[in-house]
Amino acid sequence: MSYQGKFRVWRGDHASGELTDFTAEVNEGEVVLDVVHRLQATQAPDLAVRWNCKAGKCGSCSAEINGRPRLLCMTRMNMFTPDQVVTITPMRTFPVIKDLVTDVSFNYVKARELPAFEPPKDLAPGEYRMQQIDVERSQEFRKCIECFLCQNTCHVVRDHDENKPEFSGPRLFIRAAELDMHPLDTRDDRKETAQAEQGLGYCNITKCCTEVCPEHIKITDNAIIPMKERVVDRKYDPITWLGRKIARRDQLSNQP
């Protein structure tokens, strides 16, 4: 069952680095993170990697495996043949701190620029009423584990640091969409904000983000495209805008 696998792991810091060859034991059922841990315990105690839950729930162990953005904890070794070299590199879009650990503060800065949920002023805690069907649209986006693989893979910023100031990225587009679709959020400018301040217009819907999402969130189809379409609607069609305001009011006045 076990075999000696071949690995190439990027090691270095913000200044320089290189791929380092390792040979390590691989056992049945293991994931790439297990091998990284084995390397730490037996060969490279200072090999830097982030991880927490080891179950695909926390989004800490994002990296690139054979060039593809993935969670180390959800990539099973049986995807590879025993003679295949597995190359592990840090996420390319973010500055390297050390080895597989990158500085992901970009994402937290962008999160702070997005206007927060604004609760309805006329409802006390405990009075919120929402239908399951209405919360499900936002719930899809709230499955996001903030692994930032979508941010990493997005070609608008992947090799274009110059776009970072203007562009919040897919993670924050789904956050905007989530709030836009939240049945009780009282802001009605989520789409305009996404366009004007998040750089939604930079996205040309190549769906790379959707492809790498470990939670299988339909980022492009369910968040970005509707946000783009409705920005267009709202810009040119005041009736749509008015209709939506009325629909929202109905929802609120239906409180039992």
Binding site: F117, P125, Y128, M130, Q131, V135, Q139, L179, H182, P256
Partner: peptide, 19 residues
């Protein structure tokens, strides 16, 4: 009260038929 308060922060729990 602590759970209801989370809704005012934006939490979206699963719902009963009454909402």
């Amino acid at each position: 009260d602590r759970i209801w308060e989370l809704e005012t922060y934006g939490a979206l729990f699963d719902r009963t038929p009454e909402g």
